[in-house]
């Protein structure tokens, strides 16, 4: 093995990243070549100095306390239950709206239905004839709402 080849492989040799054959070649070259031995010692010396500088590095006293005092106040568990909370609120809200405002909502729905009839007569005529399609559509909307809630939670937590 020639010196330039050996020098190129010194870091990989040090990190045990070489195959058996190459490792043996580098090891035997290092035994006999003073120039490469010098390179090797310089690398070891530089890295030892670098590692040595970190020996005194540690967090200062009271670090944990400072971190804990800086943490946001909001409860993680409340956020984790956001979808469940949203479903509960949705159901409770719907019940309240139905109980209190149904006399008001019915005319609004009729108005919306007439608007739909004039804008898109075909689906408006078809939908009431197929309750499954109507409720299926509502279920799809509800699932879309749940996915949206879940995504919002992910974004808030990221």
């Amino acid at each position: 093995m020639q010196c330039p080849d050996c020098v190129k492989l010194l870091y990989a040799y040090m990190d045990d990243e070489l195959g058996r054959e190459e490792r043996l070649l580098v090891a035997s070259h290092l035994k006999t070549c003073e120039a490469c031995q010098k390179e090797w010692h310089e690398i070891q010396q530089a890295l030892a100095a670098y590692r040595g500088e970190f020996a005194a590095i540690s967090a200062s006293p009271g670090f944990t306390g400072r971190v804990m005092a800086s943490l946001p106040e909001e409860s993680q568990s409340a956020l984790a239950f956001l979808p469940v909370t949203a479903i509960g609120l949705l159901l409770a809200g719907s019940a309240v709206i139905y109980a209190v405002f149904s006399p008001l909502i019915y005319p609004i729905l009729r108005l919306l239905y007439r608007l739909l009839m004039s804008l898109a007569p075909l689906p408006a005529m078809i939908l009431p004839a197929f309750p499954l399609l109507l409720y299926g559509g509502m279920a799809v909307l509800a699932v879309a709402f749940l996915i949206l809630t879940w995504t919002t939670r992910k974004v808030v937590l990221s």
Partner: peptide, 12 residues
Amino acid sequence: AKLVEQYQNRIV
């Protein structure tokens, strides 16, 4: 807090 205690020196 225990996790902070455990990893603070390595992270610093």
